[in-house]
Write a protein that binds this DNA or RNA. Structure first.
Length: 160
DNA sequence: GTTCTGACA
DNA sequence: TGTCAGAA
């Protein structure tokens, strides 16, 4: 067990793995990012994370990996596949050495941007309707909420 | 106890 | 992506 003497209290305290060497294991990274251990291992297989290994085979992650994992989650939620995310990560790394994405990647990003903008538009419309319904429920808005004359048809592949 | 890999759903 | 099994 690693130990450290506190000069203020004179008390020797035991240090965990992270405190001792500035690194963390997969369990702690999962806890601090809210991303499952299973997902973190998957990210590694996809080349999105490249943790070092200790002698016992355990992965070791750095503080920078926390932001990296959160960034990965954002890109997944934007509809990007792991391959594109792997290409994109170097462009948004926090070391201020931003790279210019390749033309092919730029095309993908523009598609993603359009997709996100459409989602925002749909969500904004939904929010507006909900706000009017809630306002009417509280008696602060007497305007009628438009009701479709026919049942709204669901389209395959469209998830709002 | 924690993490590993591999497999299955 | 979650869960399980067997091993280290």
């Amino acid at each position: 067990m690693n130990a450290k003497l506190n000069p203020d209290t004179g008390v020797t305290v035991n240090l965990g793995f992270r405190d001792y060497c500035g690194l963390m294991r997969i369990g702690e990274l999962a806890e601090r990012t809210g991303v499952s251990v299973r997902s973190l291992r998957y990210y590694e297989t996809e080349g999105l994370l490249r943790p070092d290994r200790r002698g016992n085979g355990y992965r070791t992650f750095t503080e920078d990996d926390i932001a990296r994992v959160l960034q990965i989650q954002l890109f997944y939620s934007a509809g990007l596949c792991s391959g594109k995310i792997a290409q994109l990560l170097p462009c948004v790394s926090g070391d201020h050495t931003h790279l210019v994405p390749s033309p092919g990647l730029t095309d993908e990003l523009e598609i993603a941007r359009t997709r996100i903008q459409n989602q925002i538009s749909l969500l904004t419309t939904s929010l507006s309707v909900l706000e009017r319904v809630l306002a009417a429920a509280k008696g602060t808005d007497t305007a009628e909420v438009p009701v479709p004359s026919k049942p709204v048809r669901r389209h395959r592949g469209i998830h709002v």
